[in-house]
Amino acid sequence: MPINESKQPIIVKKIIKKGGHHGGAWKIAFADFATAMMAFFMLLWILGATTEDQKAAISDYFNNPSVFMGIATSPSQTQGEGTGSKPSLVEFEGALDMGPPTPTVQESMLDPEQIEALAHEQDAARLATLKEILERKLELSDTLAPYKDQLLIDIVPEGLRIQIVDKEHRSMFDLGSAKLKGYTSDILRELGALINQVPNRVSLTGHTDARPLGGLSYSNWELSTERANAARRALIDGGMDPDKVGRVVGFASTIPFDKDNPNNPINRRISLIVMTRETDAAIHEENALLESKGEPAPSTQSMPATSPAPSIN
């Protein structure tokens, strides 16, 4: 006979927990939502509180962010004629495109004194960057490296100074002449291309040593001025905008590099200063004052206007 199996009832136990929770995921979602709403309301406030120029500056910043306001951190990727960009003679990784700064919304909200201080800081940073690039080119450029002991670069109160000095048996000009040596032209042309990358204008001065030329009608005053103008033309041939020239003067032997030895060849030099905004403004005011008195501005004059006896080469 079949064995009878006892059937046990199936018991389902339902446990109800009181005071339970759904975890913390909702808190993260709510925080994201609150942040998005805050950003949205800030955007509405900015759109309502800013001018069209400020909106354009904000847009420019997000399209072209940089440590310098409105300045790209890399040159244009399109190169060639008509593109506004050309290949560099020496490639510098991370080198800054040092064009004129574009005001941002933060700058436009500053008072005039703060804006002037900010502009001064930007100017100093731009010149310091140009100095670093020039120093690197002295090591890497086939044109500049052989003459790096004749290229002296430093920061002075007036701006970034670049001095090209004569050396024994290696002068920049033909003897007693304003005709540039071939390598001097190459140096100046390469410098002109670099200097043109910054908005600052330049001042050019010519200097000679204390050896007389041997004539009265043509002295070292005329020679130093003509040499400075020859340097100006070579810089422009290299790509520097002619409007960047703020002053061209000749000082003859009145400001020797080597004060202890007036005849030292190093005293024969061209000094090029990439001027600060303050220096440029001071020169502009001085020229305007002279013109108001009916006197010619010393843009291409020998300095001083009345030359002493001839004294250098």
Results as ranks from 00 to 15, higher is better:
K13I: 14
I15Y: 06
H22Q: 14
I28M: 15
A36H: 11
M37I: 14
A39H: 14
F40S: 04
F40R: 15
M42N: 04
A49T: 09
D53P: 07
A56M: 02
N64H: 12
T78W: 10
S85F: 09
S85N: 09
V90G: 03
G94V: 01
M109C: 11
L110P: 03
Q114K: 12
Q114M: 05
I115A: 03
E116Q: 11
E116K: 15
E121A: 10
L134E: 00
S141W: 01
L144I: 00
P146N: 05
Q150N: 02
L151T: 05
I155Q: 07
I155P: 04
V156P: 01
R161N: 09
R161F: 04
I162V: 02
D174E: 12
G176E: 07
G182W: 06
Y183H: 13
S185I: 00
I187P: 00
G192Q: 01
P199K: 01
G206C: 02
E226P: 06
R232Y: 10
I236Y: 05
M240I: 04
P242H: 06
K244A: 05
K259T: 06
M275P: 03
D280A: 12
A281N: 06
E286Y: 15
A288K: 08
L289Y: 08
K293E: 14
E295K: 13
S299E: 11
N313G: 09
